[in-house]
Simulated scan of single mutants.
Amino acid sequence: MELTAWVEDPKSAYNNSEEKSEFVQNLRQRFKVASLNVINYFEKQPNSPALGVIRYQLLKSATSAAANYRAACRARSKKEFFAKICIVVEETDETLFWLELLRDSDVPTDNAAITTLGKEWQELLLIVAKAKANTNFE
């Protein structure tokens, strides 16, 4: 199934709880890999004052998004899930901000790598924003 089907209407994208569970586990893994890709990218970069600030902020937001998605998967209620998924959306969006700032700055970077990272984080943001929008307390 294409990613867009999940983003457009996650409720209709799976027919049973087993498929939903598989989707949740795959998304959990995607967040972990996306965070690791950010970590590994910065391990190969030289030090500079500006890059140091961006590195610190980007590493914090990316790993926080992944950790909070993991916590959302363990939520004991819809309210708890909603609270955690709100943090995931915020941290994922912040990760995109730092990637955009790095891409648009004069700091020497591998623009192709930043673009690749940005695409994955953009897809993750679309997915979790839709999950947030679909959460209700009725």
Rank of each mutant, 00 (worst) to 15 (best):
A113H: 06
I87D: 07
L102K: 05
Y41H: 03
Y69Q: 01
P10W: 10
I54M: 01
L117F: 03
K32H: 08
E43C: 02
W98V: 01
G52N: 15
F97W: 09
D110K: 01
P49Y: 13
A13F: 14
N47E: 15
T63S: 09
S12F: 00
N68W: 14
A113P: 00
R74Q: 10
P49S: 11
A133E: 14
L59K: 11
L117N: 05
E91V: 06
T92K: 08
M1W: 08
A72T: 01
A72E: 04
K44V: 06
K60A: 15
T92G: 05
Q25Y: 14
D110N: 13
A13S: 12
F97I: 02
A72S: 13
M1R: 07
V89S: 07
E120K: 07
A72P: 07
S64Y: 09
R74D: 05
L117S: 02
A71T: 12
A62R: 05
R55M: 06
S105R: 02
T135S: 12
A34R: 04
V128Y: 05
V128T: 10
T63N: 06
E80Y: 07
R30K: 14
Q122L: 11
N16C: 04
E123W: 11
A112W: 04
N15H: 07
N47D: 14
K60P: 01
E22N: 08
Y41G: 02
V38T: 04
R30L: 10
S64Q: 13
P49L: 04
A62L: 05
K11C: 13
Q122S: 14
I87P: 08
